[in-house]
Nucleic acid binder design. Structure first.
Length: 428
RNA sequence: GUGGCCGUAGCUCAGUCGGUAGAGCGCAGGAUUGUGAUUCCUGUGGUCGAGGGUUCGAUCCCCUUCGGCCACCCCA
């Protein structure tokens, strides 16, 4: 290997052939579920004005303070590679009047996000999310729909048993502010008993202290102010409505009063799907309600709920659980080999088959070579069948077919019958 | 940003108490001029992550640096 070889940047990964098959499988399953619920795709730019993220995510969050890929372009404007999708989505919806006058929208997007963090398992500097955002719907039924939708996805992906839904409500901004003040009062008096990180969070993001992994801090929190005493009535009703809907549909959840979420814009419902299959990065999908964000960003007050899931994390899960179906790795149905003398006839047969079967995945051997070599290529191609053309077959208008998976007897068919026979085999 | 572990062939790893390296798998060819996945034979494989220091001599010891993995912080 060359020493001065240029390599991919830290935390930015190539998705190689084979891996990409799994990505396409996952994306396909997600799209199928989204289609089933009538959600529409929206595609936003990957780069935005830096201020968009500062305004939406919150100036004092870690994302904005130290994790953004921010640079000046040639016109000296400050631009940022998006660290998440919600801000861009809200911007696009407002800019194009998609949510004017509380018009309802159910939207999704998929693509790369960028955060300058130290990579570790399930966390990369360029990572990929599938995000879902809904606008114009204030009642808890849409919160429930989103959760039910993800629940259905886990079932489709066969990972349902290994993910747990954690649920909480953050209440109204007033309730949250009151609670935050009380919490800060309580903890400030006991500051010396807090772990170092939590002491810092006391001034930056006190609610996050609830999330602390430090045992002593958690013990201290047992006697701290309880959010139940601060929650506003409307949020409490919203939450119980959501719970009733999930109960009715049979989606199980765990109430986690200490689930807070890092971004400033969340209020009322927050949820996370977590797993212990992935080491430290156990959150596979997370979201919540952000009724205040659209207005905060200069639009009209518009209720909104959404979530995002991490594609890399889901793929790690699929692999950890061995939940990738066999057929996903196959990318060829038929591998066509031929003797050099009839290679042009093979081209003609391939063209004919492709015309008759638009969905057929047919790969042709190129460059001739010995039959042994061609068959070896066929075997490695993931094809189920090798189609063999030699002078004998051409003389009889036939094609020989070998099943590469089981050791069935090789057969010969008339070339005209091949398409029908294949259709039968591949749909069986 | 902080901490721990690790960098030897395409991959997984061994090794040299300091004398410029080896296995398995893979890959290529052949046994088998119309047949893969099994078997057998042959071949291909490396500036031992990079730079510097000590030394007659460094892949090995020391320093620096880069990269990877995992964890903290934080998040999908």
């Amino acid at each position: 290997m060359a020493q001065d070889q240029i390599k991919a940047l830290t935390g930015m990964n190539d998705v190689l052939p084979g891996q990409s098959q799994v990505w396409r499988y996952l994306e396909g399953q997600v799209k199928a579920v989204l289609d089933g619920f009538g959600y529409q795709e929206i595609r936003m730019p990957i780069v935005e004005q830096t201020n968009l993220f500062k305004r939406s995510i919150g100036e004092v969050t870690d994302i904005v303070e130290k994790e953004m890929y921010t640079f000046n372009d040639r016109s000296d404007r400050s631009l940022t590679l998006r660290p998440e999708g919600t801000a861009s989505c809200v911007r696009a919806c407002d800019e194009h009047q998609l949510i004017a006058n509380n018009k309802r929208q159910r939207l999704w997007y998929m693509g790369p996000m960028f955060r300058y963090e130290r990579p570790q398992k399930g966390r990369y500097r360029q990572f990929h999310q599938i995000g879902v955002e809904t606008f114009g719907m204030a009642s808890a039924d849409i919160d429930a729909e989103l959760i039910i939708m993800t629940h259905q996805l886990w079932q489709r992906l066969n990972i349902r048993e290994k993910v747990t839904l954690e649920l909480n409500t953050l209440g109204s901004s007033e309730a949250r502010a009151n609670f935050k003040a009380a919490l800060v009062d309580y903890l400030s008096e006991r500051k010396d008993q807090l772990d170092e990180d939590s002491q810092r969070r006391l001034s930056t993001n006190p609610l996050r202290i609830l999330d602390s992994k430090n045992a002593q801090t958690q013990a201290l929190l047992n006697d701290a102010p309880n959010f139940q005493d601060y929650i506003d009535e409307e949020s409490a009703e919203h939450f119980s409505h959501l719970r009733a809907l999930l109960d009715a549909v049979g989606v199980e959840y765990v109430i986690n009063p200490r689930l807070v979420r890092g971004l400033d814009y969340y209020g009322k419902t927050v949820f996370e799907w977590v797993t212990n299959e992935l080491g430290a990065q156990g959150t596979v999908c997370a979201g919540g309600r952000y009724d205040g964000l659209v207005e905060q960003m200069g639009g009209k007050a518009t209720p909104a709920v959404g979530f995002a899931m991490g594609i890399e994390r889901l793929i790690l899960m699929l692999e950890a659980m061995d939940a990738v179906p066999e057929h996903v790795l196959s990318y060829v149905d038929v591998y066509l080999v031929s003797e050099l003398e009839v290679a042009d006839k093979a081209m003609v047969l391939a063209a004919k088959l492709r015309e008759q079967m638009p969905n057929l995945r047919l790969q042709m051997h190129m460059g001739g070579g010995k039959m042994k070599k061609q068959m070896k290529q066929a075997n490695e191609s993931s094809a189920r069948f090798a189609f063999i053309l030699g002078e004998n077959e051409i003389a009889n208008g036939q094609v020989s077919i070998k099943d590469l998976r089981d050791n069935a007897e090789q057969i010969s068919l008339s070339q005209d019958e091949a398409a029908n026979w294949l259709t039968e085999q591949l749909t069986a």
